[in-house]
Design a protein around this nucleic acid. Structure first.
Lengths: 345, 345
DNA sequence: CTGAAAGCGCTAACAA
DNA sequence: TTGTTAGCGCTTTCAG
């Protein structure tokens, strides 16, 4: 394992000069530069990043703190972040918090200890309120969640609008008794609920509290909540799931109950995943530009690293409604007593 | 940002003593220990991991190098690795290689530069053969792939057996003309092909080269390969996909072709994912103990860190066959001209 | 344009 | 039991 010292010896220069050459620094005679480069080559020298980081108090690692990498939304984002980081010569430290504020705190600490260059973070509501009061020695970019007055860059979906649009779609299709399952730990769930309610209100559809659930964003919880919703009488005509994990649970519950989609109950969700187009019927949903979110977040972080005093940016991306088979218009459905009225095909 | 020096001053001891206390070292008077701990508390001191790593030449980061985090198999493994690492006080550096040997080399280099404690790695065939000749200053645990004579721990599925069992299942269900799509870059694909062929041979079913494809393990490629297979006459009766990404593509292709599963073509795959039980019909597959694989790999790595000269271990796990609707017996199928002979339900 | 020297914050001999 | 000291490998003033 060659060190800078050995390279310096081999090239007949000081370590300072080697360092300069490696940093592409100015004030080095081309001839000397060539000699150093040759020595680097010959010894297969690679700078020790740990030493570099200790000395320069900077590093080429960025932290990515998400609640669960198994959530397809975060999986896609991680991939995008990793790709963008790689391009820029950075590596990614990945952490899962399970939406657990304690783990969030621990990992944030760890980021400090590990001297990361910066962090991309998707905090729980609980942590977001702390975030403004805490001091970090690295920049943070918030993704997916909103942290109102935080002095940090963020990139997120227009959740209110997206949920409004999705709910509106359900209403337009003729559904009235619409249930919603939202993630309880995130601001995202709240915002989507607001969009959901706004659409209902606008159409003078009464809000039925029993039809709105806030649960942890996990398939089990989504399933359980759906089971409870399905047990109500009258049964909801449609169900909106606030993310892919909840939708997964909802679908499992509907299947287990032997109900047909959309005839017995329509289903709409957030997040395009590998399976949403493969199930029968394919799911109507709001697709988030996950790759874009990850790439943008990384870009914001790197830009801020470059210029710590640039103005704070908040990037809001739009989701796109993918209307598919799980929410076909109510009137098109061959109802037992309406079949005669419905044109064939 | 308190340093060990300040803590030492505050506690009225030397930095060495602080270090000892922090390392839970022996030979420290309880009274002094208490004083140090108090100072640590008071100053909210946290050791700088970078400095620690530089000095001790060890670190608490483990590298995880997979081909694509979006592959549900690797997603699940990453999660398990991260959990186990967290438990043990380690963090995870995540890297995607896209089965690209160049990227594999770069990341392996990077691991060296970053001074990681160890690496969990799923190499391409191409890299695996190099692996034995390369020297690393950290232990590597191989997952998913096999590296025959490598002096390193590994944990993988009994791929031959699993593929044999899955193919055997198809044969038992009455299928004869069986196609297979395998990943081209991994040893895993090869081994599964061998199990596949062995099962066919054993049943005296002729091997038809046109029915075996090796493609990159991506949905697009799986779809394309399936399209080609479906275009053949006679069409295959069943299709075996060697992993979840290929199965995703295969399913998309079958859907797009307007074919029914299993009536027109049966489908069997590897890897339990969120969607395999949600599609209609649910997919028959070999479920891999992903969490177990990740946890075991991490365990092997930590154990080796603890004792570098312990004997090399190769952990082989068994997959479990989940027989479901996508491969129901051929004779049970209500065929147009057989319906009369088939007992209802 | 180049080198000497001073650390970054920590650990680990070695002394005391 | 504790302190002194010498670095880990690198970057970065400051001189020359």
């Amino acid at each position: 394992m060659a060190t800078i010292k050995r390279v310096a010896e081999a090239a007949g220069v000081s370590t300072a000069t080697v360092s300069r050459v490696l940093a592409n620094g100015p004030h080095v005679r081309p001839e000397v530069r060539a000699r150093v480069l040759a020595a680097v080559e010959a010894l297969d020298y690679r700078p020790n990043l740990v030493a570099r980081s200790l000395r320069s108090q900077r590093s080429s690692t960025i932290g990515l703190i998400v609640s669960d990498i198994r959530n397809p939304f975060f999986t896609a984002i991680s991939r995008a972040v990793e790709d963008a980081a790689y391009e820029a010569g950075y590596t990614v430290l990945l952490c899962n918090t399970d939406e657990n504020p304690e783990k969030e705190a621990i990992y944030l600490q760890l980021m400090r200890d590990a001297n990361v260059a910066g962090v991309i973070f998707s905090p729980t509501r609980q942590t977001s309120v702390m975030l403004t009061t805490m001091k970090f020695n690295f920049p943070i970019v918030i993704i997916d969640r909103s942290v109102p007055d935080a002095p940090m860059d963020s990139v997120l979906l227009d959740n209110f609008e997206a949920a409004y649009q999705l709910t509106r779609h359900l209403i337009d299709q003729g559904y009235r008794r619409i249930a919603g399952i939202f993630g309880v730990m995130s601001t995202t769930g709240r915002e989507r609920r607001r969009g959901f309610e706004e659409a209902l209100r606008e159409s003078d559809i009464p809000l039925i509290p029993e039809l709105v659930c806030f649960v942890p964003a996990r398939p089990e919880d989504g399933k359980e909540a759906t089971m409870r919703l399905l047990a109500q009488t009258p049964r909801p005509e449609a169900l909106l799931a606030s993310n892919a994990l909840l939708a997964e649970g909802a679908l499992a519950a509907i299947r287990q109950s032997g109900l047909a989609i959309p005839d017995d109950i329509a289903l709409a969700s957030f997040d395009e995943t590998p399976w949403t187009a493969l199930v029968e019927p394919p799911l109507t949903l709001i697709a988030q530009p996950t790759h874009d979110i990850g790439a943008t977040a990384t870009d914001l972080l790197l830009k801020r690293l470059d210029d710590p005093k640039r103005s704070i940016r908040r990037v809001i991306l739009k989701g796109s409604l993918m209307a598919r088979g799980s929410t076909t218009p109510i009137s098109d459905r061959p109802k037992p007593n309406a079949r005669a009225r419905t044109a064939p095909r």
